[in-house]
C-alpha cells in the first residue's frame, strides 16, 4: 500500500515580518495509484506541502504517512521532481539520469540499462551524451523526469515540473506523464497552477488557499480514464474548470489584496 495520508499538517516559518503559516491543518489522502493535483495561488504553500511529504522538511505539527509508514526523512521509493531546473550541468543526460542509481549503489550494468530505459521512456533517446546546456528547457525537465523514473519510485511528487515551459510543450509533457503513469501506475501528487492541466491529468484536484495554506476544495474529476487533450472541448471539462476557477479566483484576489495591504490599516480586503 503506497498511498499518501496527510494528518492535520501544519508548517510555519519565522520570517522578518513575523510568522508565516505556509500550511495549516491539511488532512487529505491520495489513494494508492491515484493521481491527484494541487492548484493554488503563488506562495500558498504547495511546494512546502510537497517538501514535507518528501521528507525534506519537518512539519511544525501533524504528520504524513506514505505507504502506511510515517515520513521522517527522504525515501528512495518516493521520487521528487522540483519546481526549479535541477539537472546537473556538469553531467551528461545519461550521467544525470544515472545519478540516483549510483548513489543507491545499484550495480553498474543495471544502472546503465535502467537509465537507458528511463531515457527512452521520456523520449530522449539519442541525447545521452549531451549536456543540459545543449538542451531546451522542456528537454531538461524530461531529463529530470527520467532521473526520477529511473529509481522506479512507487510515489511521485511533482512540483510544477512544466511551469516554466510554453503551453504546447506543457501539454505534450503532460500527455507524456499521463502515458507513463498508465504504464507504471505510481501514486502521483502533482502541483500546478494551470487548472486545465490539473483537470486533464488527475483523478482529483485539491484547491489550496493563500495564507494560511489550507485545502479549501476537493474536486473529483469524473472524466473518462483514457482521456486525451480533446476532452478540453467537452461540457463536463468546462464545468469542472469553472468550478475550480471560481474557488481559485476568489482566493487569488484575497491573496493579492493581503499581499498589497498596508499593514497599518489592518483590514483584510476579503
Amino acid at each position: 500500500m503506497t498511498g499518501i495520508s496527510i494528518h492535520e499538517l501544519g508548517v510555519a516559518f519565522s520570517a522578518k515580518d513575523g510568522r508565516v503559516i505556509a500550511v495549516d491543518g491539511v488532512t487529505q489522502e491520495v489513494p494508492e495509484r491515484g493521481f491527484v493535483s494541487i492548484v493554488g495561488p503563488s506562495g500558498c504553500g504547495k511546494s512546502t506541502l510537497l517538501s514535507v511529504i518528501a521528507g525534506l522538511y519537518a512539519p511544525t505539527s501533524g504528520h504524513v504517512e506514505v505507504g502506511g509508514r510515517r515520513v521522517t526523512g527522504p525515501d528512495r521509493a518516493v521520487g521528487v521532481m522540483f519546481q526549479e531546473d535541477s539537472t546537473l550541468p556538469w553531467k551528461t543526460v545519461l550521467e544525470n539520469v544515472r545519478f540516483p542509481l549510483q548513489v543507491a549503489k545499484v550495480p553498474k550494468s543495471e544502472q546503465l540499462t535502467r537509465a537507458q530505459q528511463a531515457i527512452d521512456l521520456v523520449g530522449l533517446g539519442g541525447f545521452e551524451r549531451r549536456h543540459p546546456a545543449e538542451l531546451s528547457g522542456g528537454m531538461r525537465q524530461r531529463v529530470a523526469l527520467a532521473r526520477t523514473l529511473a529509481m522506479r519510485p512507487s510515489v511521485m511528487l511533482m512540483d510544477e515540473p512544466f511551469a516554466a515551459l510554453d503551453q504546447q510543450t506543457r501539454l505534450l509533457l503532460g500527455a507524456e506523464v499521463l502515458r507513463i503513469w498508465r504504464e507504471t501506475h505510481q501514486t502521483v501528487l502533482f502541483v500546478t497552477h494551470d487548472i486545465s492541466e490539473a483537470i486533464l491529468l488527475s483523478q482529483q484536484v485539491w484547491v489550496m488557499s493563500y495564507r494560511p495554506g489550507r485545502i479549501i476544495d476537493v474536486v473529483d474529476v469524473d472524466l473518462p480514464e483514457d482521456r486525451d487533450a480533446s476532452v478540453v472541448a467537452t461540457p463536463a471539462f468546462n464545468a469542472l474548470q469553472n468550478r475550480v476557477w471560481e474557488v481559485l479566483q476568489a482566493e487569488s484576489m484575497r491573496g493579492f489584496a493581503q499581499e498589497n495591504a498596508v499593514p497599518a490599516s489592518g483590514v483584510p480586503a476579503s
Binding site: S51, A54, G55, L56, G73, P74, D75, R76, V78, V80, F82, E84, D85, S86, L88, W90, K91, F99, P100, Q102, V103, A104, M151
Partner: peptide, 24 residues
Amino acid sequence: VYWRLARSVRAGRWQTLRHILLPA
C-alpha cells in the same frame, strides 16, 4: 535545489561532495 536533490536521493556526505559540491 541541488542540495534538495542530493537529500531526496539520500546521497551521503562523500557522494554529495563528489557529485554536487566539487563539480559545482
